[in-house]
Nucleic acid binder design. Structure first.
Lengths: 235, 235
DNA sequence: CGTAGGTTTGATGCATGCAAGAAGTCATTC
DNA sequence: GAATGACTTCTTGCATGCATCAAACCTACG
């Protein structure tokens, strides 16, 4: 992963600008460039073997996504998220996922149901063998399946933006999710699926919101003990 | 309105790039450039008396906001929204405003309550003298007061993006809001405020969602009879 | 008359040069 | 020694030129 492909000079190393944006986003989200780190255009341009222009456009986009901060005439820096923002984002997450579950329930019998059921089964297996990595991946898929299944592209769009901003804290969150929350979390997933099977929009929304809320609280507790990701990386 | 200010050559007509973005956004939202209209960089650069670069960056941002569509190597066009998107956006609106009302109620006694009460009084006066323009403005303020009052900047951010996309349809929506909805809408606003006064998050959320939902349905009915804004402006 | 192919046009994508501004540095002065 | 001031440096902001590509057009041929 992250393999740098070297092409002969003269040929643009990246297929297009979208590619640069993706790479940059990954580098930020993965923590390669930690919060507070400077992102000089010229440096990045050299890295990607392009000129400043496409890098500049990518940075603008990342600023728009809330991942970096552009201080005019000074420079671009990886954004340092505050605790407050995390809380705000979780509140939004709860609302959006609740809506997604509700919409999915209203759609009635859908193929997503089988996917979700299988997801729970796999999650249980991952939990039994204490496979935290797989488990985290499954949780991720579970939530995205519901959001995508809501059949509301605008919702998915906003949700994606939100999750990108929360991704900063993945390290904190996933570790927190592990110990005691796993079993409870699976039960909550199950109750969401139950409501979906009954085609009960209100029940599905409530179950989903309860689940997200519980996860958020656990994450918040974790963020209080373990320091939030990259607090104060710059002077 | 829309007066083009001519400045002497050499002095940038716009203070900075943010200014260009705002102007462009206004031009698109106001319908100056209708859905489907092309937005060539060079043309706009001449309009604003700047080079293509800042225009280009503004267009990128507008694409990100969902207002324009950039077709690579072809051109930029004002986005043509679909009916489906409108429905999706209203679903999101309901959810976000419900969350906002809930959060505001949780804050307890807040100065926003007085603002909302005054807003309802003014709305009633506007309704009595059939002042649709003022009424529409008041409705707008009412909803934004609640969103801002929720004290969740991320929520406000997402809500703003959403409302920008819905603003295309302001013509349709506001005209629809007028006839029979006005009185009902005011009653619904009142019930939201009632729940807020009782510091009842659940009640406030339900009242808000009911209100948004009712408005949306009315708007959807209107959009079915009156054609959606700017359907098929291009070939 | 319709279609296929080449050409022209017009727009964007990117590279690069230059100017302007912000922050830190260093020397000077009180 | 501390504060003030100019200066140096690093960065972005914008303008512009060239290459590239998509689409329309026009021509030639079946």
């Amino acid at each position: 992963m992250q393999e740098v492909i070297q092409l002969r000079k003269g040929v643009p190393a990246s297929a297009n600008q979208a590619s640069i944006l993706d790479k940059l986003r990954k580098l930020v989200l993965s923590g390669e460039y930690p919060p507070g780190a400077p992102l000089p255009e010229l440096f990045l341009a050299d890295q990607f073997e392009v000129s400043r222009t496409p890098v500049r456009e990518a940075l603008k986009q990342l600023e728009n996504e809330g991942l970096v901060e552009i201080r005019p005439k000074v420079g671009t820096f990886v954004r340092i998220p505050t605790r407050r923002e995390i809380v705000e984002l979780f509140q939004l997450k709860e609302s959006l996922e609740g809506l997604a579950a509700s919409l999915l329930a209203r759609r009635g019998t859908v193929p997503e149901l089988d996917i979700l059921k299988r997801n729970i089964e796999e999650s249980e297996r991952a939990e039994r063998r204490a496979d935290a990595a797989t488990y985290a991946e499954l949780v991720h898929e579970f939530h995205w399946t519901i959001v995508k299944g809501s059949d509301n592209s605008k919702l998915a769009e906003h949700y994606g933006r939100l999750m990108n901003q929360l991704a900063y804290h993945r390290i904190v969150l996933e570790t927190v999710e592990r110990p005691a929350r796993m079993r409870a979390s699976i039960r909550e997933h199950q109750s969401v699926v139950d409501a979906l099977m009954e085609k009960d929009p209100v029940g599905a929304e409530l179950a989903m919101r309860g689940h997200v809320s519980a996860s958020s609280l656990a994450a918040a507790r974790g963020a209080d003990t373990g320091n939030a990701a990259g607090e104060k990386t710059q002077a």
